[in-house]
């Protein structure tokens, strides 16, 4: 598939609010991207016209109950069939921040045995509690399966901002070691919170900003086609979005967030 043929659907609903900058990031890299309200997609029935589905950040339906759950449930009712086809055909799905929460609530992530009927993990209230907007560092721990990190060397440290109040990734306590093992064994672990030198946080605040189990910031499914992460790659796209650009003599044109989008496009353009 040629780059300019790739069509990205950035899906929104009431409370989605990072759609414009997410679309901009894709467009910057020369692919087609559109923001579509879920009502519009239901009416047109055209979700399958797109090659990539993105759930951007925000507070879908206000997130007054578990973050992402209302959107996930209503989506499975409204567009469940199309989503199933999307997944079965291996079309990539990306969830950023609230989007990650939605993918977990939908059962698409971690998706050890395919889409699960009930969430297998959760993204819950930060420890220490409260919303936090801050640049953090991530270590790429994926060994090559994840389509969204295909161009990022294993072990590379990336910098992106987080902005969330509920980003603490947890498995059910009684199964957490077993599930972690599965995650690692199937190369579903993607990003972990780490320090400047690439040492993972080991649960220590503020390097791990939310108390996430095993410093997990982003994971993918078994096939590596569905990816969710709490940090915002679309806010780390350009040099002028970096927190310390006024200190640098020379800045690279792009920030680390670009690697996520670029990896995906690379993955798709290599597919026949």
């Amino acid at each position: 598939m040629r780059r300019e043929e790739i069509k990205v659907c950035v899906m929104r609903v009431g409370g989605t609010n990072c759609d414009a900058e997410t679309k901009r990031a894709f467009q910057e890299l020369g692919v087609q991207a559109e923001v579509l309200h879920v009502n519009e997609l239901v009416k047109q029935g055209n979700l399958l016209d797109y090659n990539v589905l993105v759930f951007p950040g925000g507070f879908s339906f206000g997130d007054y109950v578990r973050s992402g759950v209302i959107f996930a449930r209503s989506l499975s009712v409204k567009l469940g069939k199309e989503i199933d086809t999307f997944v079965d055909e291996g079309r990539p799905i990306l969830g950023i921040c609230n989007g990650f929460q939605i993918l977990v609530e939908y059962g698409l992530l971690p998706g050890f045995e395919g889409t699960s009927a009930y969430p297998e993990a959760t993204l819950t209230t930060n420890v220490p509690q409260g919303f936090k907007c801050q640049w953090i560092r991530l270590k790429n721990e994926n060994k090559g399966k994840c389509a969204f990190t295909s161009k990022i060397p294993a072990g590379k440290v990336l910098r992106m901002p987080i902005a969330h109040g509920e980003g603490r990734f947890l498995f059910p306590v009684e199964k957490e070691q077993q599930m972690l093992q599965k995650l690692v064994d199937n190369d579903m672990m993607v990003f972990r919170y780490c320090d400047e030198n690439g040492n993972v946080a080991d649960g220590k605040y503020p390097t791990n900003p939310n108390g996430a189990f095993h410093d997990i910031a982003g994971i993918c499914n078994r096939e590596g086609t569905i990816f969710g992460l709490m940090p915002h790659p679309e806010r780390a796209m350009y040099w002028w979005q970096q927190p310390d650009w006024t200190r640098q003599k020379q800045m690279a044109q792009y920030g680390d967030g670009k690697l996520v989008f670029e990896s995906l496009i690379d993955h798709l353009t290599k597919k026949i």
Binding site: N17, F131, C133, R235, W240, Q241, P243, W245, T246
Partner: peptide, 17 residues
């Protein structure tokens, strides 16, 4: 830090340096 000062991705000089 409890205010999202980066959403929309256009904050080039942040409140905290």
């Amino acid at each position: 830090r409890t205010y999202d000062h980066e959403v929309k991705g256009n904050t080039t000089l942040k409140p905290l340096q």
